[in-house]
């Protein structure tokens, strides 16, 4: 089982969902207007989307912009905290890795080419 969004019908707060669509590494992911990029990805069942220095998966940890574990590229902007950035319809999200591309270098292996 995975993280999910409370369904609008069952939600005690009585909300109205306006769907939006972002792409994550080219794959379409559906969310609702008002969500953070992290929330959209979590609710779509994605849990770990960044790669740490060893290549291990990382995702949301602190949820409030302090731990910097959930960094993604949004459009041309690298290192965006997914938990703090509102998703906009049509956002093109690219996943990042901090694993060095060649052994011995400390340069970040980026996904700048998207």
């Amino acid at each position: 089982m995975s993280p999910r969004r409370v369904s609008a019908q069952a939600d005690a707060v009585g909300r109205r969902d306006r769907p939006l669509l972002i792409t994550v590494d080219g794959e379409a992911v559906e969310g609702i207007d008002g969500q953070s990029i992290a929330g959209v990805m979590l609710a779509a069942g994605r849990l770990g989307w960044c790669r740490g220095v060893s290549g291990a998966a990382r995702g949301v940890f602190c949820g409030i912009g302090v731990c910097f574990n959930c960094l993604v590229t949004v459009g041309a902007e690298r290192d965006v905290r997914a938990c703090r950035r509102r998703a906009r319809d049509g956002d093109v999200v690219t996943l990042q890795s901090r694993k060095p591309s060649t052994p011995g270098t400390v340069q970040e292996s980026g996904t700048e080419d998207g």
Binding site: R4, D11, R15, Q35, R58, G59, F61, C62, G63
Partner: peptide, 23 residues
């Protein structure tokens, strides 16, 4: 460090702030 380990504050922020439950 595994995905799926959250701070309690993250779970709270996601549930209260955008109606996403972590699990």
């Amino acid at each position: 460090e595994l995905p799926g380990v959250f701070t309690a504050g993250a779970a709270q922020a996601l549930a209260k702030g955008e109606r996403v439950v972590v699990g």
